[in-house]
């Protein structure tokens, strides 16, 4: 249990989320994979601030990674609320939530 193992978990989870975003066709599944990616970034930030601390730092700067993760969680909550609202709106208009059938912006 050291910094590398946490970073490897974070990297694997980020790649799984990226694969999910790229290969899924259901919009809700894409949003779920996006949540995986945001969570993996939190793990990396917290692990880095746990194992690497600046010299002669004040106690509040030791927890900088936790503060970074708090803001990431805020943005993730905003993103999932907006994303699911867009999904509901699309479902009302088109009755479909698969990205293969949504091509209104295609030139």
């Amino acid at each position: 249990m050291n910094l590398e193992s946490f970073l490897i978990i974070s990297g694997v989870m980020f790649s799984i989320g990226l694969i999910g975003v790229l290969i899924k066709s259901n919009i809700i599944a894409i949003l779920m994979s996006l949540e995986l990616m945001l969570n993996s970034v939190n793990i990396a930030a917290v692990a880095a601030s746990r194992y690497v601390t600046p010299l002669n730092s004040q106690p509040e700067f030791v927890l900088w990674g936790n503060l970074f993760a708090v803001f990431v969680i805020t943005i993730a909550a905003a993103e999932i609320a907006l994303g699911l609202a867009i999904v509901m709106s699309l479902y009302k208009r088109k009755n479909r939530i698969f990205i293969d059938t949504i091509s209104d912006l295609k030139g």
């Binding site: 790649s15 066709s25 599944a29």
Partner: peptide, 17 residues
């Protein structure tokens, strides 16, 4: 929960990353 038509390209990109 089907896969989209880009599944092989997406899998390839994800494995490279």
């Amino acid at each position: 929960n089907p896969f989209s038509k880009f599944k092989f390209i997406g899998l390839f990109t994800g494995l490279i990353v």
